[in-house]
Design a protein around this nucleic acid. Structure first.
Length: 641
DNA sequence: TTAGGGTTAG
């Protein structure tokens, strides 16, 4: 695997670039392709005029550099406030039309009412639709609601997380002598999945098949596939896909896309790509959703070159990127700290006639917060308001977390207290961000008070909240309090996940209590938990610190055997361990392996490797491996595109 | 002819 195929010498040669990134804590060792990714993207999307038949004619194609450097005024950066009807006006006009129909005599056929209801549910106003059906249609003499109306009502219940009510409507449907359709059951199956009751959904699905009550169609299969994917059973979803292929109901774009997305989220991007190729072989056309999932998956793993290729392929197939595609690209840029490029994506999308939405701008804001540029984040927030997009609770949470990260707890607290006045009730994430901020400043008492307040106002802490508490207490030296919390959770039936254990393992390692860390680590499997890459990294770090290189190396080998691939942190940790023990040969071999896997030396490891190469270059024992680096690098450098 | 499945941010 030589995505960033380079050697150690390349690290040195590219030090000015890498250094810059090292300081920001993001992956260094950028390949030339990596650096040019957003440029390629913009240039291509701007200069390609044949891709989006529905989009307005694109402006003359500027050069990539012009896209990045051209500063447009703020009013051009964001869509202007809409003069046409907003979403609420759309709802109002649908309601007006519904009410007008109720006044007509003779009354219109039920299908017309269903159509109006469908418009309302498509806008997401499920409670309104349900109320219209139950409180208006049912009360009017002369209207006979039909199967379609029932299905809309059942779907509305499901979308409101009231699947049980959906099932009682199914009862009423039977009583009225209607026969439910595949749609009816599928809606209920989906309702179960939405309420995290996938096992029941699968049960119902199986029952329908065995009783031959309903012949499942592709939508029903697709819904079950989605349920399996959402619950981490992507492999079972793939099995179902294979079963479909054997039967008469063939998988469609949605089924494939669902699995492709899930594989990407499960870090199995290569398998996702294989399915994508398979679609092509079977003549099933990918759509914008399929491409969005793949581009997102590839970007998440730094596979820019392939992401660009897929993006080009999408444009070549005549599929126009939508707001989600551009948001994924903004996200990819911001996660790499490339804010100018992220702003560039925003410009491109506007020029292409796609308006950024609140998610796009929140993503951009989050990028600025990650970089610590709160002034820029606030500028985006203000722009959002000016342009008629209403910031949501996520926008507020992003800013609060940003302030906390910058240790500006007063500003964070101000915004936090301001939220109810703006119509937002702080949620678990809001409290989590505030708690993290307080712990970071060592204000454990205030954090405790806020945690109590959270429970008083009825926000249920989730495992992440407990993780923040546990970590905060540990990092502030309140180990015994942390342990009490840990045991309290156990007593209250709150499951400890691997993160909780990892926090304690890390604490014990740093507290020189390696034996306690080992006990916790070794007991994980008895609790049915599997260490993740962070858990391994913490243990490996602890072992290296104690000079137990042999045990660290054993664990390093074992993690991969157990199916947990080492990441950049693992390599850097163990390489530093070896260098610390003057085992330069092993360190260089591991460095080579690290680079081959697309990771690179971080700010603390990098100078140590440079030191080995510059001071031990003549060491006969090392010459062979150093030569190998040099040789590889000459290839790596030719890879430029 | 009106109902059901897949993609984005904290």
């Amino acid at each position: 695997m030589s995505r960033n195929g380079n050697g150690v010498a390349a690290i040195i040669r590219r030090a000015p670039i890498a250094d810059n990134w090292l300081l920001k804590g993001t992956p260094p060792l950028l390949s030339p392709t990596h650096l040019s990714f957003p440029f390629v993207l913009f240039h291509y999307s701007l200069s390609n005029t044949t891709t989006s038949p529905s989009s307005p004619p694109p402006p003359p194609p500027p050069t990539a550099a012009a896209v990045i450097t051209n500063q447009v005024s703020e009013s051009e950066t964001l869509p202007r406030k809409r003069c046409n009807l907003g979403p609420n006006d759309d709802l109002q006009s649908a309601l007006n039309s519904f009410n007008r129909m109720l006044q007509m005599r003779p009354l219109p056929h039920i299908s017309h009412f269903n159509k109006a209801l469908g418009t309302i549910t498509k806008m997401g106003h499920y409670a309104t639709a349900l109320s219209l059906i139950l409180n208006k249609l049912q009360q009017v003499q002369g209207i006979l609601v039909d199967l379609y109306t029932f299905n809309i009502a059942i779907n509305s219940c499901c979308r409101l997380n009231q699947v049980h009510f959906g099932f009682s409507l199914l009862g009423s449907l039977f009583k009225r002598g209607y026969t439910p359709a595949a749609t009816t059951f599928n809606t209920l199956i989906n309702g179960l999945i939405l309420e995290d009751k996938t096992p029941q959904a699968v049960e119902l699905f199986k029952k329908l098949i065995t009783t031959r009550e309903i012949e499942p169609d592709v939508v029903m299969y697709g819904t079950i596939v989605n349920g399996l994917c959402r619950t981490g059973n992507t492999i079972r979803a793939v099995s179902l896909l294979r079963i479909m292929e054997e039967g008469s109901c063939k998988p469609d774009t949605v089924v494939y896309s669902t699995i492709i997305d899930s594989l990407c989220k499960d870090r199995m991007v290569d398998d996702a790509l294989k399915l994508f190729t398979e679609m092509d072989e079977k003549g099933i056309f990918p759509d914008v959703v399929t491409y969005n999932s793949l581009i997102h998956g590839l970007c998440n793993f730094g596979r820019w070159k392939e992401a660009t290729k897929i993006f080009r392929e999408m444009l070549d197939s005549g599929i126009a990127p939508n707001v989600r595609t551009y948001t994924v690209l903004v996200d990819a840029c911001t996660k790499e700290g490339k804010m100018k490029e992220a702003e560039g994506v925003l410009e491109v999308m506007i020029q292409r006639g796609v308006d950024p939405d609140v998610v796009t701008l929140n993503t951009l804001m989050d990028g600025y917060c990650l970089q610590g540029h709160m002034d820029e984040a606030i500028r985006v927030f203000s722009n959002m308001v000016e342009k008629g997009l209403r910031p949501n609770i996520v926008s507020h949470n992003i800013l609060i977390a940003g302030y906390c990260k910058k240790m500006k707890i007063d500003e964070a607290m101000h915004l936090f207290r301001e939220m109810p006045r703006r119509g937002f009730k702080p949620n678990t994430q809001t409290f989590g961000a505030m708690l993290q901020g307080l712990f970071q400043l060592g204000r454990c008492g205030a954090a405790q008070k806020l945690f109590n307040e959270m429970q008083i106002v009825g926000i249920i802490p989730d495992s992440q909240t407990y993780g923040i508490l546990l970590d905060g207490l540990c990092k502030n030296g309140h180990i015994s309090k942390a342990l009490s919390l840990f045991h309290m959770m156990e007593r209250n039936g709150l499951d400890h996940d691997v993160v909780m254990y990892s926090i304690l393992i890390d604490t014990f390692c740093k507290d020189k209590k390696l034996d306690s860390a080992r006990v916790l680590f070794n007991n994980l499997s008895s609790k049915g938990l599997h260490p993740n890459v962070k858990t391994y990294n913490m243990m490996i770090h602890g072992l290296c610190e104690e000079g137990l290189l042999h045990e660290a190396k054993e664990l390093f080998v074992k993690m991969e055997q157990s199916g947990c691939l080492p990441d950049g942190v693992t390599y850097n940790t163990i390489i530093r361990g070896f260098i610390g023990q003057h085992k330069c040969y092993e360190a260089l071999i591991l460095t080579e392996e690290m680079v081959e896997r697309g990771f690179s030396a971080d700010a603390s490891t990098f100078p140590l490797i440079v030191d080995i190469l510059s001071t031990k270059g003549q060491d006969p024992a090392l010459q062979e491996v150093i030569k190998k680096f040099m040789h590889k690098d000459s290839h790596g450098m030719q890879e430029k595109e």
